[in-house]
Amino acid sequence: MSLAPLAGAAPQIASLVDPGALLATGGAVDGLRTAARVLAEGIGKGAVYFTIAVGLTLVFGLMGVLNFAHGAVAMVGAYLGGLVLVLVVGANTGTLATILVFFVALALVFAVTTAAGSAMEVALIRPIYDRTPTYQILLTFGVSLIIEEVARIVLTLRGIQPNPQWQAPMGTAPDVLLGRTELFGVGVRRLYLFEVAIGALVAVAVWAFLTKTLYGLYIRAGSEDTEMVQALGIDVRQAFTVVFGVGTGLAAVGGVLLMWDPIWGPSVLLSIDVLLYAFVVVIIGGLGSFTGTLVAAGIVGIADSVTTWLFTTGIVTFPGLSEVTIFLLLVVMLIIRPQGLYGVEEVGGH
């Protein structure tokens, strides 16, 4: 079951620079079309940002733990999901079957990482709840270091280079997703539509979990007032374990989604990248707020696509524009409204 031969599979990366953007010059209709396309891409990117950030905000909302291992779990998710697809999907597998396998991989990865996350909460985080939040940050950061290095060792042993993207899983993306589709007169990359669909699915699932299940009730109550919930006789510790597990699982789901995206792709570097972007989204939306995360992901996604468009069309010649803009959003939000768009003032003690 060696993976080494697969590492050399032909890379199938969609061009990062959008040819449509370069043609968009002059004309009111063209301008409108470009705006619509940039907006659509922004929503697609926003869906990705939402998926990688929602688990982080869920965990923080109830437990007040900023999980620094979030990115590392997403990285593991991307590799595990890629592994499943590479093993199952062959050259003859149909489009529908591939997408079916994708969902199976999604469910499988979610189940595995949720269990692992719960175990981690019980074994490592539970003993230090009574310490200052700094120690929870430190602990999860240490865990993320370990996960990252173990991933590097496994990848090196299996002959897959650690740093560059592992191309094989991206090769399994069905051709349908690589094309474009006409939507309101503009060509939108189908991968973005797919990502929006997954993002919406995750959003609905998390929303249902929060509002329709008992644990969701605990979380919403617990993020308002943990002590009161405890006083009402609810075992908050058990709720913590479940929520940390689900949050970890959602991080991995985000990772699986990134696996097919040519901008990200499975790589060890995902660990830090996902973590930093998830932080931005969660802080802008308000730590612990589900609606906030949704809105903030949209804002960050659109800001990303607008600045990317500005750079690719040559209006701005500064290559780091979109990263700088995203982190500036974080800084500006913390200056003018530290609790975020929908955050509660007391959360996180600022």
Partner: peptide, 8 residues
């Protein structure tokens, strides 16, 4: 303060 200081 706290987490917010670290983040900014």
């Amino acid at each position: 303060t706290g987490v917010y200081f670290a983040m900014i």
